[in-house]
Simulated scan of single mutants.
Amino acid sequence: MLGKFIVIEGLEGAGKTTAINAVTHILIKKNITELVYTREPGGTAIAEALRTIIKKGLNDEPLTDKAELLMFYAARIQLIENVIKPALQANKWVIGDRHDLSTQAYQGGGRQIDPQFLSMLREGVLAGFKPDLTIYMDISPELGLQRARSRGALDRIEQESLPFFERIRARYLELARRDKSIITIDASQSLEHVTHDLQHVLNLWLHSNGID
């Protein structure tokens, strides 16, 4: 792979769009202009159809936790094989709004799906493919959901209980501590401070990869 894959993660209301804009600005200043943007679930026709079912449900049929999980991976592998890998091989940089860390946090932490099953599925589908850098925008569930509500109606997952999101945040923080490719940003700060921190960590990471 010639390009780089950078992913922005976080709870609802964490400011992922702000982070994506900041990353874009920094990369363009470094003359990295061949950029591809993705979101998960989504990004291909099949993945977008699955996104609609995941977000809104279908005909009031209950969506089981494992079915939801499998839909996420079906959408993800469509995106990886049809969009992300071709972009990286063409020396383009990919900026992703969510990737597999979301599944580890939401389905593993929030839904409490068996970790062995989750690990087996992840390895079977992704075969070790992962982002070069993940920026996790950390925020309390209370503040994040307050911000999300101010944007409009909440989707099926956003309507879950507060303990659900507390488990997600705990899993995000646990995984970030264990993986040096994940950088945590305090997203509860002012926009100015968040942007400053994003610029700082990304510039350090670019420098460590020989990009000044």
Rank of each mutant, 00 (worst) to 15 (best):
A127W: 01
L27P: 01
A153H: 03
L145E: 07
K29V: 01
E9K: 13
A49Q: 15
A22H: 01
I6M: 09
F5W: 02
L118W: 05
S119A: 14
I168T: 15
I95Q: 14
L126S: 00
K4N: 10
A14Y: 08
E68L: 06
Q159C: 14
I139P: 05
N203T: 12
E123K: 13
L11C: 04
E61R: 15
E81G: 02
V125M: 14
A87W: 10
R156K: 12
I80H: 08
L145V: 09
I211F: 07
G3N: 09
H200Y: 02
E68Q: 06
S119G: 11
I54V: 15
V36M: 10
N82E: 13
G57P: 08
H193R: 10
A22C: 09
T18I: 13
L143V: 12
A187L: 04
D132S: 07
V23L: 14
Q112F: 02
A74F: 08
L154W: 04
L101H: 00
I182D: 00
G3V: 04
R151V: 14
I28H: 07
N91K: 13
L63E: 00
R39Q: 11
A67P: 05
R151K: 13
H207P: 00
I157V: 11
E123S: 11
A45H: 10
L145D: 06
E68C: 07
Y136D: 01
N59W: 04
N203E: 15
N209T: 01
R98I: 11
T44P: 09
L173H: 05
N203P: 05
E9M: 06
D100W: 05
L126H: 03
L50K: 03
T52P: 01
